[in-house]
Write a protein that binds this DNA or RNA. Structure first.
Lengths: 351, 351
DNA sequence: CTGTTAGCGCTTTCAT
DNA sequence: ATGAAAGCGCTAACAG
C-alpha cells in the first residue's frame, strides 16, 4: 500500500503530464483536451469542466514549448539595451514588462554593455530563441543595422526606443531631443548665462546629437557665441562629471552654465563644484536630463528634463504587441513622447 | 526570370531553413547535419566544414525551441522580483545577466509589483515556460511558498536572493542584515544619539526584520532604551520619507538620529528635514542603506551600508547555473555576502 | 461537437 | 562515421 503510493508520487514528479494522459483518463481525444484547455468555443461545457477537473487532479501544466513549436510563435519579446544599471533604464523596463505582461507576453532581456559586439551576440540569441518581436536601444558605438538583417528578412517587427537609428524603417520611440536641448539651453541663457558648457554623449547616437543641435540652435537664436572648447563628449558616468569639473578648474575663463545630458553626471558635477567653492547657480548654473530621483535630492535641486521612461517602455511594448497582433494601427514611423523642462534651484538665479 | 527570383526570395524569408534542407542539399542525413552543427566528435571534419558552409549560405538559424522540446531544457533562467525601478534592483539584474550570458543562459524577468498575487502568476508563467531554474526575491506580502510547490515537486532549482524565506530548503543569498542594522545603530549611538528613529519595511521579510533586530540589539548592548514609538514601518518610497518627517515635526521630543533601511527614503528625509530647518547631523543624524548613488549626492552625504547588488546578482546566477550543471558544489544553504558601513557626513558629528 | 492525422524542427538511440 | 526511425507535447486541417 505504501509502496504504490510512493510510486505514484514519483511518477507525478518525474514524467510530464500531457494532454494525452488527460485524454486517456477521460476516454476522449487529445485534440478535444487541447481545445477544452484553451476554452475553445466548440467544446461542450460539460466536457470542458471534466477536462479541467482531471487536468488539475493530475497536475497538468501547459507546455509552452511544444505549443510554440507548433504555433510558430513564442509570446516572447526580446529587449536589447545598453545597460541596466540606472534608475532611468529600469523604469523603461518596468513599463515594458507591465504592458507585455498584460497581453500575455514575456520579456527576455539582454544588455549590450554599450558594445556593438555584445549587441550583435544578444540579437542573434534573441533570434535563435525565436522572439516574436524585438525592442532595441542601441549601444554607444553601433554604426549600422546589419546585425538586425535576420529580423528584417523574416519581417519580425523591431522597434527602437531612446537610442534609435534614424535611417531605419522601423518605428522609433523617442522624445524631441532637439527641442529638449533647446529648451534647457534657452532657459540657461535667460538666466544670464553666456558661456554654457555642454557635456554630451557620442554624437553617433540620435539623442546626443539632437540635444547638441538643440543647444547650438538656442545659442544661435539668442546671439550667444558658440565655442567648441565648451563642448565635452564623454561616457556619461560619475567619472565624466569629475573630469569635467577638473577641466573647468583649469580654464582661464570658466563657464557660467553647464548643460549635461544626464542627471547622475550633473549631480556629481554640482557636488564637485561645491567642493571647489564654486557657487551653484550663482557662479555656474547647472542643468541635467532625465528627472532622476537624484535631481530632487542634490542641493541645490537640479533643473532637468522630465524624460517619461516608464511611459516609453509601455508604449514601446504596446506598439510592438499591436504589430504582432496585426491590429491596424496608424502606421506612425516615429512616436514622439512629451517631455518637459523642470526648473529648479540649480539654474535659478535671483534677479 | 524575375518571377523565379522573387519567389526564391520569398521562400527564403518565409520558410525556416531546417537541418533537413541542409541535409538534402548535401545528400546526407539530418542527423549528421545536427551533429555537425553542434561539433559532435563523430563527424568527419570535411563533412562538418561542408555543413557549416551550406548552413551559412542558406541562412540557417538554429531553432532553440525544437531543440528544447526534444532536450527537455530551455537554457532559460526565470527571475521574479518585486520591482525594477531602482538603481539597486537593476544592479542585481545586471549581475545576473552577465553571469547567465557567460554560461549561455537567458534571463526571463517578471515583476511581482510587491503583490503575492502577481508573484503567483509570474511563477506559474515561468513554470509553463519551462525555465531551467528560478531566482526569486519575495514580494512585500508573501507569507508562504505554496506557489513554488510546482517547482519543488519537479526538483527544479529555486534560489532566493535579497528577500529570502528563512524556513526554505533552497539556497538563500543575502547579506548579514542583522549585523548591518547593528553596525549602523551602534555607529549612531557612538555619535551621541539617544533617540534613534527606525524606519523599516514589512517585518515579514527577513531583511527588514533582521535589520530591525540588529537595531534593537545595538540599543540594548549600549544601554539606550528602546522606544516602540520611534519605530515606523512603511513602504519605503519617497512618500514614506515625507510622512516620517511630518510625524517627527509633531513630536514633543524629536529623535536625534534616524536609521532608514533605504537610501532614497533617507535622502528624501534629509531634504525635508533641511526644509524644516532641522540641521543634519547636528540636530538629527541620518543613516540609510544600499549605497545608492543618491547617497553620494545628497548634502550632507549619506552614511549608509554598502550593499553588493551586482555581486549578489552574479552569485545568484552562477550558483543556480552550477546546480543546473550538477557540478558538485559545497552545498551551502545560505550564502552571506560581505557588507560594509560607509560613514559620511550625515551622521558624523564634530566633537 | 469530437476524432483522425499529420506535422512543427530537432535530438537520440540503435543499427549499419 | 553515418543513417533510419521514433518521438518531445501540442495544434490545426479536415472529416465526420
Amino acid at each position: 500500500m505504501l509502496n504504490t503510493d510512493v510510486r505514484l508520487i514519483e511518477m507525478k514528479s518525474d514524467k510530464e503530464v500531457t494532454i494525452y494522459d488527460i485524454a486517456e483518463a477521460l476516454n476522449i481525444s487529445a485534440s478535444t483536451v487541447s481545445r477544452g484547455l484553451r476554452d475553445h468555443p466548440s467544446v461542450r461545457k460539460v466536457t470542458k469542466k471534466k477536462i479541467m477537473i482531471v487536468a488539475n487532479k493530475m497536475g497538468y501544466q501547459h507546455n509552452k514549448f511544444a505549443s510554440n513549436l507548433r504555433k510558430k510563435h513564442t509570446n516572447m519579446i526580446g529587449v536589447v539595451l545598453p545597460r541596466l544599471d540606472s534608475y532611468f533604464q529600469s523604469t523603461i523596463i518596468s513599463g515594458m514588462e507591465k504592458e507585455a505582461n498584460k497581453a500575455g507576453y514575456n520579456l527576455i532581456i539582454s544588455q549590450s554593455q554599450e558594445s556593438i559586439k555584445k549587441e550583435r551576440a544578444s540579437i542573434l540569441t534573441m533570434f535563435n530563441s525565436r522572439v516574436d518581436g524585438l525592442l532595441v536601444s542601441l549601444a554607444y558605438d553601433t554604426e549600422n543595422l546589419d546585425h538586425l538583417d535576420i529580423f528584417f528578412k523574416k519581417k519580425i517587427p523591431v522597434i527602437f526606443f531612446d537610442r534609435v537609428y534614424d535611417q531605419s524603417e522601423c518605428t522609433n520611440i523617442v522624445i524631441d531631443n532637439f527641442k529638449a536641448g533647446y529648451d534647457v539651453t534657452k532657459h540657461l541663457i535667460e538666466q544670464g548665462c553666456r558661456r554654457i558648457l555642454h557635456l554630451g554623449g557620442n554624437l553617433l547616437r540620435n539623442l546626443y546629437s539632437d540635444r547638441f543641435r538643440g543647444y547650438k540652435q538656442a545659442l544661435l537664436d539668442n546671439g550667444v557665441p558658440f565655442d567648441q572648447d565648451l563642448v565635452f563628449i564623454d561616457r556619461l558616468n560619475e567619472e565624466a562629471g569629475i573630469n569635467t569639473v577638473k577641466e573647468i578648474l583649469k580654464m582661464k575663463i570658466p563657464p557660467d552654465g553647464i548643460f549635461t545630458v544626464n542627471d547622475t553626471t550633473a549631480a556629481t558635477i554640482i557636488c564637485k563644484l561645491k567642493e571647489a567653492s564654486i557657487r551653484v547657480p550663482d557662479d555656474i548654473a547647472v542643468a541635467g536630463f532625465n528627472n532622476d530621483p537624484i535631481s530632487r535630492v542634490v542641493d541645490p535641486n537640479l533643473t532637468t528634463i522630465n524624460y517619461p521612461g516608464e511611459k516609453m517602455g509601455e508604449i514601446a511594448a504596446s506598439t510592438l504587441i499591436h504589430k504582432l497582433k496585426k491590429l491596424k494601427t496608424v502606421n506612425t514611423n516615429t512616436i514622439i513622447l512629451h517631455h518637459e523642462l523642470i526648473i529648479r534651484q540649480s539654474s535659478l538665479r535671483k534677479r
